[in-house]
């Protein structure tokens, strides 16, 4: 097991190196003088020069890259131009928000998605089955920011059940935290529920056709016990894989959802950085989320191989 994890970690090093390179180089895409763009249209020559000095833009690209790597190794992502503070601490401060949002959304997705998938498989062709199909299709077709606006309009502005946006830390007010995150988490989760339900349904159907299920039925086990004891366990492997994909979708979706609901998470930090051309924030934020992405995939693969020994053996062979 340790060997497998180590092997996977080493394999992700080149990818992470390229990720850092891309995150840093995006700044080079800016046409013209980046310092002038950052300083703004009304900036004087001195102000532009100051920005250039601050960002070290006088140095050649390779020198800047090396300096960036140097401080990166010490965990320093640089100073934000607009926040006037270190990017590392700004990001660390925002991790709990993004983590709460995606975790909450994940709980909703897994609870409703797996339950709906099982029901859809057991009662094929029922309304639950058809609803799963429809919501899977809607999940890939609805614009997430639009769904968010509609939900805000209906449940926050109209019915007044939830706040229209903003965040309350869990440590201050757990009920307020739950209220503030329910709409964003539901938006984020709803779009993925259908996908999870579809996968659960199809792997459940496959399992229900297996011989051991027939044996269990033949020896007179009640249906719920067959599903619980024999079927669900074997559905776990494909479901975990999809949960990995869903996590990536959620991290990506949270960028937009945090912006619409004014949640002070990492996604919103990066979007604000991008819109205001705060380069250290863009580079740091992109890097941190991409590394998180690579790690999530790694964790999923490891989980996957723990759950299904056949994969571990194949990797060793």
């Amino acid at each position: 097991m340790t060997r497998y994890i180590l092997h996977r970690l080493i394999a992700s090093i080149p990818v992470i190196f390229l990720v850092t390179l891309i995150a840093f180089s995006i700044m080079q895409l800016v046409p013209g003088d980046p310092a002038a763009v950052i300083a703004g249209a009304n900036a004087t020559q001195e102000e532009v020069e100051l920005v250039r000095q601050q960002l070290g833009l006088n140095e050649p690209f390779l020198v800047r890259l090396m300096q960036w790597y140097g401080s990166l190794l010490q965990g320093d992502l640089g100073q934000s131009i607009l926040l006037q503070r270190s990017v590392t601490s700004a990001i660390i401060e925002r991790i709990p928000v993004t983590l709460s949002l995606t975790a909450y959304a994940m709980v909703l997705t897994v609870t409703f998605g797996v339950a709906a998938g099982v029901v859809a498989a057991v009662y094929r062709g029922s309304w639950v089955d058809q609803a799963c199909m429809a919501s899977a299709l809607l999940g890939v077709s609805l614009p997430n920011f639009w769904l968010a606006l509609i939900l805000i309009f209906a449940f926050a502005v109209g019915l007044g059940w939830f706040p229209t946006g903003g965040y309350v830390p869990f440590s201050e007010d757990p009920a307020g935290w739950l209220k503030a995150l329910t709409l964003p988490a539901f938006t984020l989760g709803f779009l993925q529920m259908g996908l999870l339900a579809r996968i659960t349904r199809s792997s459940m159907l496959e399992v229900l056709n297996q011989d051991y299920v027939r044996t269990a039925r033949a020896k007179g086990l009640p249906s719920w016990q067959i599903i619980n004891r024999h079927a669900l366990r074997n559905v776990v492997v494909p479901v975990v894989t999809v949960i990995g994909i869903i996590t990536s979708h959620m991290v990506s979706g949270s960028v937009v959802i945090e912006t619409v609901f004014s949640l002070p998470g990492i996604g919103r930090l990066v979007i604000q950085g991008i819109l205001r051309r705060d380069y250290p924030v863009i580079q740091g934020g992109l890097l941190v989320t991409a590394v998180a992405f690579v790690l999530i995939n790694l964790i999923v693969d490891v989980l996957y191989s723990r759950l299904d020994p056949r994969i571990r053996l194949a990797a060793r062979a």
């Binding site: 990818v15 990720v19 891309i22 990506s252 960028v255």
Partner: peptide
């Protein structure tokens, strides 16, 4: 490496 970024974030950047 390109796929390691949240797609929408990379596109916005």
């Amino acid at each position: 490496a390109l796929m390691a970024f949240p797609s929408i974030m990379l596109a916005i950047a």
